[in-house]
Design a protein around this nucleic acid. Structure first.
Lengths: 254, 254
DNA sequence: CGGCGACTTGAAACGTGTCAATTAGCGTGG
DNA sequence: CCACGCTAATTGACACGTTTCAAGTCGCCG
């Protein structure tokens, strides 16, 4: 049952609060909340009913987890694998709003209302745990420290959204891609999903394009340049950071 | 004291819940929450202390309301005037994340933590009311219906952020500008701040540029085209929508 | 072996940015 | 009240980054 939690580093809730100020993101609040929720769902009342009912699901890659407007009475949280949340326009244009990693709530909107508001899809094979919404809401209002964790996740999510807007509105293709790679690296290392400077990288280039507001062709070009410059190395579905400082130089403002 | 509330239409909290589904924005949840907060701050306990203490401030145009990282123990809400929230890069690049109109919370992050995380500035002369954060938090946990309103505001804010990412990542300059104008019109009309198809339009073109991820020069060009096509008319600080359908045709996907 | 999707690469087109010159608007002080 | 100086907006010519279109390679799976 708890296979998933071995994937996740046990991290104190406030470890990352200072680097939060630096770049506005990459905090571990998600993980802290996730552990608290698991805890709650493991505990039993005197009648052996769980304090927070939940269920685990496993789905193959490219499956839809939530439609933006259908109603759910559960809140899914990723246990393992990669997922993404996106918006789509009728004409096919798509914007990926975030990649979801283990420990992250699929849509915080689902905690308060029945709809996710965005399309959530599995990128790899994904397992996720769904928590009953009304029980979760009750738990939040009953346990202030849980609510505290949740509000931090919330604030962090907002800050990530702001960063995304800054990236899309005011940064060049090189910057966006370097930042994407670095951000993923940071998030994965928090989750112990890196082997040295290498990590599994399941994203297709068209997905990277949809996340950065570029075309697949241009993503290919820029990544090729990154490779030729010795910044990164991609082989198969593995990505290795070869020159982290170089990436930072491109990513940050000059 | 209540001069500000005459600016705001008295609107039932759920009026706009269906058009929320259509375009993901422009709901009146802000106004509903704002009225509830005003209500609370007017009521007195038996000792004549207000249930929620607040204070009104008036500041001239171009003043900073919140620095992104300084600590506050109050939550400001706009009473009248236009403000904006933005992010800035060391090298001067700026992205405006939203324009703030009467009834809107300056930063929802301030409800939960001491920092706003973004730079909030007055565009016009602004009056705003600051509510004590800890009292507000207490009120939220005490009054479920207030919390309900607040969570709707939050979900709506999130949805606006998603729209912004879509705009910046996947829409052309024409589309972004047409959408900005239409969105502002909608929000202003909800607040009774329109005279027919005309409204006061205090934005400088460089601010429009920073909100849409364009350059001031290009904003000027596109707006000039809009004017020549008879879509809008700008004179002084007033903007008139001359062909709303035409704007919609440009704004929506083709 | 064939077919298909993912990626790469080149050439050309396009949208938007940059630079620069000019005009219009507006508050200030003489 | 006008001259001044400042900032905002307009316009043109050109440069640049990114997209588009198209052809070709590679690897994978039936």
């Amino acid at each position: 049952m708890m296979k998933t939690s071995t994937l996740l580093k046990e991290i104190d809730s406030n470890e990352a609060s200072n680097d939060f100020l630096v770049s506005g993101g990459c905090s571990t609040h998600d993980l802290s909340l996730w552990h608290a929720l698991l805890e709650l769902s493991r505990k039993r009342s005197e009648h052996d009913a769980p304090l927070l009912s939940s269920a685990e699901h496993t789905i193959p890659a490219n499956t839809i987890i939530c439609h933006p407007t259908t109603w759910y009475d559960v809140v899914p949280v990723i246990s393992s694998g990669w997922a993404m949340s996106s918006m789509m326009l009728p004409n096919g244009r798509q914007q990926i709003l975030s990649f979801l990693l283990p420990g992250e709530i699929v849509s915080t909107a689902l905690v308060f209302g029945p709809t996710a508001g965005r399309l959530i899809q599995a990128i790899t094979k994904v397992t996720y745990r769904t928590f009953n919404r009304s029980e979760l809401k009750a738990a939040l209002s009953k346990h202030p420290e849980l609510f505290e964790k949740f509000s931090k996740v919330w604030i962090n999510e907002r800050s990530e959204a702001d960063q995304l807007a800054m990236d899309l509105g005011r940064r060049s293709a090189d910057e966006r891609l370097a930042r994407l790679i670095l951000k993923l690296m940071k998030r994965l290392s928090k989750r112990d999903m890196m082997q040295g400077q290498t990590f599994e990288f399941p994203l297709r280039q068209h997905q990277i394009a949809d996340a950065t507001g570029l075309t697949p062709v241009h993503v290919s070009r820029v990544l090729t340049i990154f490779r030729r410059k010795g910044l990164i190395e991609i082989d198969g579905r593995m990505l290795t950071i070869r020159d982290e400082n170089g990436l930072h130089r491109i990513a940050s403002v000059k």
